[in-house]
Design a binder for these strands. Structure first.
Length: 106
DNA sequence: CCCCTGACGGGCG
DNA sequence: TCGCCCGCCAGGG
């Protein structure tokens, strides 16, 4: 395990449709609790990786923080297309669609 | 080598 | 889950 961007991408790729997760959840799953920022960074580097559904990754508040990076409402459209209810750039039933790899994947 | 910044998180009011 | 503040890892100038 390189325990770097690759691992993060792998976890993000495992996110089922209609489900979202937080940077901290991924970081925690990898063992880096305070590495939430690190995960976000990896996502930034995942721009050239269409295999990484970064649109399913939001912050702990359920806000589509990376929406601006996707360009316009692209991120929100993708989420709603998968069944995720988004309201005002924020996930409506966040705790309902919240997918924790450390709990469900493990 | 030091300082700043970043798609963040948790605790507190 | 709202707002404020501090803490966390790592890269870039």
């Amino acid at each position: 395990m390189k325990n770097s961007f690759e691992d993060i991408y792998q976890v993000v790729r495992l996110i089922p449709e209609g489900r979202v997760t937080s940077y901290g959840a991924i970081a925690e799953y990898l063992g880096s609790k305070g590495g939430a920022r690190f995960v976000g960074w990896a996502m930034n580097a995942s721009h050239g990786d269409p295999t990484v559904p970064a649109h399913r990754v939001v912050n702990h508040a359920g806000v589509l923080t990376g929406k601006l990076f996707f360009g316009g409402n692209r991120m929100q459209e993708l989420l709603e297309s998968e069944g995720v209810v988004v309201e005002n750039d924020k996930i409506k039933n966040f705790k309902t669609v919240y997918w924790i790899p450390k709990d469900e994947l493990l």
